[in-house]
């Protein structure tokens, strides 16, 4: 479209967007700077806006060693977060894709009821049933286990709905061609449905990995042993109520380490991420 472009109208969008980017990035930049100074500079409030010289020291201390308050090193926490996020993402995808397949491609008694049973769980976020769920996990002896961390978060109506939606777009003729070609239901699933779902699975994986990695309330409740802590919980525990004792430089290094994996996932798999985000909300 022909539009008179003035100097102002050309640069205004860029100006606003750059301001937006700066506002969005600023807290993270400050955290990064914080992770590169020594405790003293931070504590007396004279930390400048550029990185200091303690970067390597702070990160290696945070990752490998404990510190004055006998804290767990961050390395194992990263591993715990990673394991939990992977179990949640893979588990969710696995159970959702087969249940969606059952609901879409079979006719059987109680099919609608099963679907509704799953569907209604959309309305029961973990926060509203937190203590009873805690009690069940405790009764099952799953406190302080990876299973306890992940399994209660695995059942998800969202993922099932997403797969159902996707299966609905697979043309009926493919099932029919496959029946004529002599493939049964499981063969059709493995040979055709699964390969066609790859992008959807990948998109969902990205979203669910981030979801799992960022869990807070649930792991806070059910992990008591230090060696089962996830990094998101760990960083919270570094903030000592008496501010003087908080080792902010280590807390910030840990924060940066905790943000890195999910942020990298978003940046490197941006297409899948956007797709997953938009589709899980349909």
């Amino acid at each position: 479209m022909v539009e008179r472009r003035t100097w102002f109208s050309t640069f205004l969008p860029h100006f606003i967007l750059i301001m937006g980017v700066l506002i969005v990035a600023f807290p993270v930049y400050v955290a990064f700077v914080g992770s590169s100074w020594d405790a003293g500079t931070i504590a007396n409030g004279t930390m400048p806006l550029y990185p200091g010289k303690f970067l390597v020291e702070n990160y290696s201390r945070a990752l490998l060693a404990g510190n004055a308050t006998a804290r767990e090193p961050v390395g194992p926490m990263l591993l715990n977060s990673f394991i939990m996020a992977i179990i949640i993402a893979v588990g969710k995808i696995a159970i959702s894709i087969i249940s969606a397949y059952a609901v879409v491609y079979f006719r059987f008694p109680l099919r609608q009821s099963a679907f509704w049973l799953i569907f209604i769980t959309l309305m029961l976020p973990v926060e509203v049933r937190i203590y009873p769920t805690y009690k069940i996990v405790a009764d099952l002896g799953m406190l302080d286990t990876y299973a306890g961390l992940a399994v209660p978060l695995i059942a998800s109506a969202t993922a099932t709905l997403l797969f159902r939606q996707f299966f609905m777009t697979i043309p009926d003729e493919l099932v029919e061609a496959s029946k004529i070609d002599g493939a049964g239901p499981m063969k059709f699933f493995v040979d055709t449905v699964l390969p066609l779902s790859i992008t959807t699975i990948a998109a969902l994986f990205v979203i669910q990995f981030i979801y799992g990695w960022n869990q807070y309330l649930w792991p806070l409740l059910i992990t008591t042993r230090e060696n089962m802590q996830t990094i998101v919980i760990g960083i919270k525990k570094m903030l000592v109520t008496q501010d003087a004792l908080t080792e902010w430089q280590l807390a910030m290094a840990t924060a940066v380490l905790a943000m890195l994996p999910p942020v990298l996932v978003v940046l490197l798999m941006q297409k899948l991420f956007v797709r997953g985000l938009v589709e899980t909300e349909k």
């Binding site: 960022n214 807070y216 905790a258 943000m259 942020v263 996932v265 978003v266």
Partner: peptide, 11 residues
């Protein structure tokens, strides 16, 4: 602009 989505609320 989209990456802060990946930052955990607690962080």
């Amino acid at each position: 602009l989209i990456w802060p989505y990946a930052v955990a609320p607690a962080i």
